[in-house]
């Protein structure tokens, strides 16, 4: 299935603005982050720490609703979902 991944700020500079990823049915947010990390060493370092844990400063929105970190492992993605990945915000 295809999902759209959008990245912003520092994450956009590494991952790219908009990506369409083809991932297996039943994949979750964690699987998506692993797929993104596999694309380059820089992506991996951005998303995962040395112990392979998802970094603390990653914020994920699914279809423009923010996901709690505890939901990363539980959320199953669907065809055409829009996932946004970004660092802590700094507007205002």
């Amino acid at each position: 299935m295809k999902v759209v991944v959008r990245a912003f700020a520092r994450f956009r500079e590494v991952i790219g603005d908009v990506n369409t990823l083809d991932i297996p049915e039943g994949s979750g947010i964690q699987d998506l982050l692993i797929a993104l990390a596999a694309r380059s060493g820089e992506s991996r370092d951005l998303l995962f720490d040395e112990e392979g844990m998802i970094r603390d400063n990653i914020i994920v929105m699914l279809n423009r609703r923010r996901l709690a970190r505890t939901a990363f492992a539980l959320t199953v993605l669907s065809e055409e979902d829009e996932v946004a990945i970004y660092p802590p915000v700094a507007g205002g």
């Binding site: 520092r10 915000v89 507007g91």
Partner: peptide, 14 residues
């Protein structure tokens, strides 16, 4: 409002 903007609105500065 300004405190909440700084917490949650997806905007960044370079």
């Amino acid at each position: 409002i300004i405190d909440r903007i700084k917490e949650t609105v997806p905007i960044w500065k370079k």
